[in-house]
Write a protein that binds this DNA or RNA. Structure first.
Length: 455
RNA sequence: GGAGGAGUGGCCGAGCGGUCGAAGGCGGCGGAUUUGAAAUCCGUUGUAGGGGCGACUCUACCGGGGGUUCGAAUCCCUCCUCCUCCGCCA
């Protein structure tokens, strides 16, 4: 609770799901949330009760305020402010003021509880999102390329990278602990080439505006995209030095290391009203990403598949509500283009309702083939959030035909996760002698180097 | 880190504790003029939450929060943000 309330006071976010929509369509909302495995019916009933109370409290308070306003007006027009009548009236109005304060306090309490509930409800799955609760229910949409075949036993990226002396897990552990990696030599170079390549393709060929955002963000930004309040444990937060703050009389914001560039880039338009004619807006940006991986103990402990710090190029789009679904296809294709240009075998799956992220209403994952694991692994997740994020961060547009501001729709996707792309290149392009071929598209970014040679 | 200054509607910018949702300008929209456009003139133009079938009406919002007061954009406290100068620093 305390984690995000300061954000509430500094950016005044609207609740995520529309209160009116939820409270007036409780059965439908319950059904939709059940589809993604959320089935706390009691919580939703509580929300309904609170919504009703909120309405009656507001009506009451506003009537009292109207009375006060009218009385104050009359007071202003009294010529003799010292008259006994004026003094008496003043006493009466003082009581009225106290009643208003009581009503306001009740309203605040009700709204605080409502907000807490709403902020913790996930987005409703889009009708186009298939049923299912786990990744086993995801739907394969299309497959690109063929599985590479080897006439030797395929090595995994750890063996390959260590052998080539381009990945160093032991020294990373010495410096930073488990789940970190040091890239060396051509490994570092390859990482840098991938970042450059991806940004170039998206900026020059796909029309995205390139941005380089901060990687430390306020809690209000994390709240806007949906990482907070529910998933605070997944992010790294800057330690606040209470002693120092007391001494300096300062009280800074909580700052979080971004788990994805989605957070700073999507929040670029928080609390803004953009011109409808400017939509769609598209940004691409690189950031390092930081994740605590709380709760994933024992999962992917080997190698750089799941690490605390990794690099990623992100795609973010803002669009008109009518275009959201089509924009998701566009964005997904943009991400897929990178894998195609790199010649990496992969597939596209649509996530079922239960496997989607908290804020998403429809998602596609790009899964790249890892021969050593003999499995497809997520390398990009492309999602359409409807107005879920926009509502939380108050990102709106003014329709071209005049009219009231409306919430934009937001989308994002990895374009791509650089670390996992590097893993896929090592594993899919490995040669019998342990060397690795550099994808043709990357050669210009590698100063002409076509192969990472075996030692 | 030290010393100052400032935060008002889409933007700029006025505003004696009551008649201020807030002058004026820009921008936007509608209209007049024009072959059309520019220019000019007239009008109009915030967001959100309640109530009413509805024309409509009420309430809140002048960076956030709190306080004083019958009454706060205006007074007090506090926090945040931005700017200027000095210092330090990649």
């Amino acid at each position: 609770m305390r984690d995000w309330c300061s954000a509430l006071t500094c950016c005044r976010p609207a609740p995520m799901l529309d209160l009116r929509h939820v409270s007036e369509n409780l059965p439908e909302v319950k059904a939709a949330l059940t589809r993604r495995g959320f089935s706390d019916a009691a919580l939703l009933d509580r929300l309904g009760t609170l919504a009703e109370e909120r309405r009656s409290v507001i009506t009451g308070v506003e009537a009292l305020r109207q009375e006060r306003n009218e009385a104050s007006q009359a007071m202003a027009n009294v010529a003799d402010k010292k008259s006994e009548e004026f003094q008496t009236r003043r006493e009466q109005l003082r009581t009225l003021g106290d009643q208003i304060k009581q009503g306001e306090a009740r309203q605040a309490a009700v709204e605080t509880e409502l907000e807490a509930i709403l902020l913790n409800l996930p987005n409703l799955p889009h009708p186009g999102t298939p049923d299912g609760l786990t990744e086993n229910d995801n739907v394969e949409i299309r497959v690109w390329g063929d599985k590479p075949s080897f006439d030797f036993d395929a090595r995994d990226h750890v063996e390959l990278g260590t052998g080539l002396d381009i990945l160093d897990f032991e020294r990373a552990a010495k410096i930073s602990g488990s789940r970190f990696v040091v890239l060396k030599g051509l490994g570092s170079r390859l990482n840098r080439a991938l970042m450059q390549f991806m940004l170039d393709v998206h900026a020059a060929e796909h029309g995205y505006e390139e941005v380089w955002p901060p990687v430390l963000v306020k809690d209000s930004a994390m709240l806007g995209t949906g990482q907070l309040p529910k998933f605070a444990k997944d992010a790294f937060r800057m330690a606040k030095d209470e002693e120092w703050e007391a001494e300096a009389g300062a009280q800074g914001h909580d700052l979080y290391l971004v788990p994805t560039a989605e957070v700073p880039i999507t929040n670029l338009h928080a609390n803004e009203i953009v011109a409808g004619a400017d939509l769609p807006i598209a940004y691409t940006g690189y950031t390092a990403c930081f994740r605590s991986e709380a709760g994933s103990y024992g999962k992917d402990t080997r190698g750089m598949i799941r690490v605390h710090q990794f690099d990623k190029v992100e795609l973010v789009r803002f669009c008109h509500p009518d275009e959201g679904e089509a924009q998701l296809d566009v964005l997904t294709q943009h991400a897929q283009t990178i894998l195609q240009k790199l010649g990496l075998h992969h597939r596209v799956v649509q996530l079922c309702a239960g496997d989607m992220g908290f804020a998403a209403q429809k998602s596609y994952d790009l899964e790249v083939w890892l021969p050593a694991q003999s499995a497809y692994r997520e390398i990009s997740s492309c999602s359409w959030f409807g107005d879920f994020q926009a509502r939380r961060m108050k990102a709106r547009f003014r329709p071209e035909d005049k009219g009231k501001p409306r919430f934009v729709h937001t989308l994002n996707g990895s374009g791509l996760a650089i670390g996992r792309t590097l893993v896929a290149i090592l594993e899919q392009n490995q040669q019998a002698d342990g060397s690795v071929n550099v994808p043709e598209a990357l050669v210009p970014y590698m100063a002409g180097i076509e192969r990472i040679p075996a030692p």
